[in-house]
């Protein structure tokens, strides 16, 4: 388990946190001419991404940082899917705007735009952060968590997440890199699901074929590295891995996307300098995870 003194290693991630929070409102860049050869769905996506969703914007984006903004109870009920982000306590003992809120809420919204374009899912347009110890978590059977290498779950969060998973929910962990963060995440999962092994998902696992037929697991770099066009790895996380935790009946409880950053790829999908193959893969894997979670 990570010690409370541990400090986040990547300064860039912290910077991203502030950049999304400072204005209190989404700051989207005006799209520049886009490179050719983009997947048609993503062209449409990029264009759409420049138009802010109107549904519930006032509630989701206008308020200043604080507790109320963490819990924008969806003002539209009865939708089939709410993209739900796990709010957790991190190693710095923060649960308002800590590591959980990296890329929030722009990545969430942009992913939802893509998800709705590409599938027939009746999804709510905005982000939906829910604390792991909130009973309402159980209303959203799929929950997405980022920077899980910095997780330091409280006892109530641990119990909340465990009950959520045992009742039938699925956790998608994303954007954590290298062996130190892996070790912390693994330790946290051992607290939540003691004795459940973490297993590499084989390339023929239905998760990779349920909507898009994915034949490889790409390493999706963060926005800085992606724009630079050089290496894609961070820390000592040289190879991306897609892993899972299963229950006794073979049901997938946790999808683990290690050494890869889907969130950044969604958040910067419209950025012409961010390589299209990464955002393309990030959307494809994201869509597959959602369709899988809603059917398996």
């Amino acid at each position: 388990m990570a010690s409370p003194e541990s400090r986040p290693a990547a300064g860039k991630t912290r910077a991203r946190v502030w950049s999304t929070n400072r204005g209190g409102r989404l700051r989207l860049r005006t799209p520049r001419p886009i490179r050719a050869a983009a997947v048609s769905g993503l062209v449409a996506l990029a264009v759409t991404a420049s138009i802010l969703p109107t549904e519930g914007v006032a509630q989701g984006g206008a308020s200043s940082p604080g507790e109320s903004r963490l819990r924008p109870t969806p003002n539209v009920k009865g939708r089939a899917f709410y993209f739900t982000r796990a709010v957790y306590t991190d190693v710095e003992r923060r649960n308002t705007f800590g590591w959980w809120s990296v890329d929030y809420p722009k990545a969430d919204r942009q992913f939802l735009i893509g998800l709705k374009r590409l599938t027939g899912i009746d999804a709510y347009d905005l982000e939906n952060p829910v604390r792991l110890d909130d009973p309402n978590l159980r209303r959203y059977p799929m929950v997405y968590a980022v920077e899980v290498g910095h997780m330091a779950l409280t006892e109530t969060e641990r119990a909340g997440l465990r009950d959520f998973l045992m009742a039938g929910g699925i956790l998608v962990a994303d954007d954590f890199w290298g062996s130190w963060e892996w070790a912390n995440f693994q330790a946290q999962m051992e607290r939540v699901l003691p004795g459940y092994p973490i297993i590499d998902l084989p390339l023929d696992h239905p998760l990779l074929h349920v909507f898009y037929d994915l034949t490889e697991v790409l390493q999706v770099p963060n926005v800085g590295l992606g724009r630079a066009g050089g290496r894609t790895w961070e820390k000592d996380g040289y190879t991306a891995a897609l892993r899972g935790i299963f229950d006794e009946d073979g049901r997938l409880l946790v999808v683990i996307n290690w050494n890869s950053d889907l969130g950044d790829a969604w958040e910067w999908a419209e950025d012409p300098y961010y390589p299209i193959q990464f955002s393309n893969f990030a959307y494809q894997l994201g869509v597959n995870v959602v369709v899988y979670a809603m059917s398996h």
């Binding site: 089939a80 909507f211 809603m294």
Partner: peptide
Amino acid sequence: EPRFEVKFIRRAVAEDENIQLVTLQRT
């Protein structure tokens, strides 16, 4: 359309040896 109802109905009868729930889902 993708709905959680699909997942949970399938899950509810997954162990029922006498029911084969063939699911066709328009995604």
